[in-house]
C-alpha cells in the first residue's frame, strides 16, 4: 500500500469530508421563485448551508449537499418550497 499511516491520526479542515451528502436525499426541495419574497428564512434554517442567493437575492438549493431534510419547506412563510420525490 502506498498509503502510510502517520504516528497518530490527525485531520485537516475539509469541505464535506463525508462527500456529497446530497446522495442521502429522497425528497428534494424545489423553490417556486414567483412565490418567493426573499425573506431568507430558508437560508437561515438550512442546517447544511445548502441555500445560496443569486445576485437578485433569490435563494437556490445546492443539491450536491442538500440532504432533503425539508426544514426549508416547513419554514417558508409563502409556501414557495415544495418537497418533491426524487427518482433513481
Amino acid at each position: 500500500m502506498s498509503f502510510k499511516v502517520p504516528l497518530t491520526p490527525i485531520s485537516r479542515p475539509a469541505k464535506a469530508s463525508v462527500g456529497k451528502t446530497g446522495l442521502w436525499r429522497f425528497l428534494k426541495p424545489v423553490i417556486e421563485l414567483k412565490k418567493c419574497k426573499k425573506c431568507g428564512l430558508c437560508w437561515m434554517y438550512c442546517p447544511d448551508i445548502a441555500v445560496t442567493f443569486d445576485e437578485m437575492g433569490f435563494p437556490h438549493i445546492n443539491y450536491d449537499f442538500c440532504k432533503g431534510c425539508g426544514i426549508c419547506a416547513n419554514e417558508c412563510p409563502t409556501g414557495a418550497i415544495k418537497m418533491v420525490r426524487e427518482g433513481l
Partner: peptide, 16 residues
C-alpha cells in the same frame, strides 16, 4: 419501498 412508506406516512425525522 420509498413510495410505499411515503404514501402510508411512514416517516421519521425527515427519513422514509
Amino acid at each position: 419501498a420509498t413510495g410505499i412508506a411515503l404514501s402510508l406516512g411512514l416517516k421519521l425525522a425527515g427519513l422514509a
